[in-house]
Amino acid sequence: MKKIIAFGASSSKASINKEFATYVAYQFQNASIEILDLNDYEMPIFSVDKEKENGIPQLAQDFYAKLGSADLIIISFAEHNGAYSAAFKNILDWTSRINMKTFQEKPMLLLATSPGPRGGSSVLEIAKGRFPFQGGVVKGSFSLPSFFDNFNSVNGIINPDLKNQLTNIITSIEI
């Protein structure tokens, strides 16, 4: 059975991006799903001085190993001031010190959502442009605008056009 690692790139305990990543992961058939919580990987803010003093934190190594165990990585990005959340960026910085090819040539589905009409599209564009340089094989991307208008916990995506767009992307990804 293929393994999907999914997470919301946010440290919010009520993260809509974690909820969205979880929903999308479970749309794939015949896969084992593991949902990560960035709060389980909280580390000191990256600096070369801290790395020289203490080495790379075990949590960064654990996160890197989780990514390496996946047949597909699904990330839904929270957008903080048009870019990654500080929590995600810090994990990415530490993990890249293990291997610049952080994502280990794994297939990825990149997502974003927000309460607003742009659905985190700025951070999604950053990730789509950056992750191939860090060993991510981006197989698809999708931005869900106006999360609270277009999604609910019972039915998932409730806008038929958006649901169809996402379904087509999921169907195109072979794991």
Rank of each mutant, 00 (worst) to 15 (best):
D40W: 07
S69P: 00
D71E: 08
N30S: 13
D49E: 15
A60R: 07
S15E: 00
K13P: 04
A65S: 13
E42F: 14
Q27Y: 05
K18I: 00
D40P: 07
Q58C: 05
P44N: 14
E19D: 03
N30C: 03
K52Y: 09
I16K: 01
S69N: 10
Q58N: 14
K66T: 03
F46K: 07
F20C: 01
I45N: 12
K50Y: 15
I45M: 15
F20M: 01
K50Q: 11
D49L: 13
I33G: 01
Y23P: 00
P57D: 09
N30E: 14
I45C: 08
K50F: 14
F20G: 00
P44T: 12
P57G: 10
D71S: 06
G68Y: 04
K52C: 04
A65H: 12
D40H: 14
K13A: 10
Y41E: 05
L59K: 15
V24A: 02
Q29M: 09
S47I: 04
F20E: 01
I33S: 04
K66I: 02
F63P: 00
N39P: 09
Y64G: 02
P57E: 09
F28M: 07
P44I: 08
E34M: 05
I16L: 03
F20L: 02
N17E: 03
N30A: 08
N30R: 09
S69G: 05
F63S: 02
D62K: 14
L36W: 05
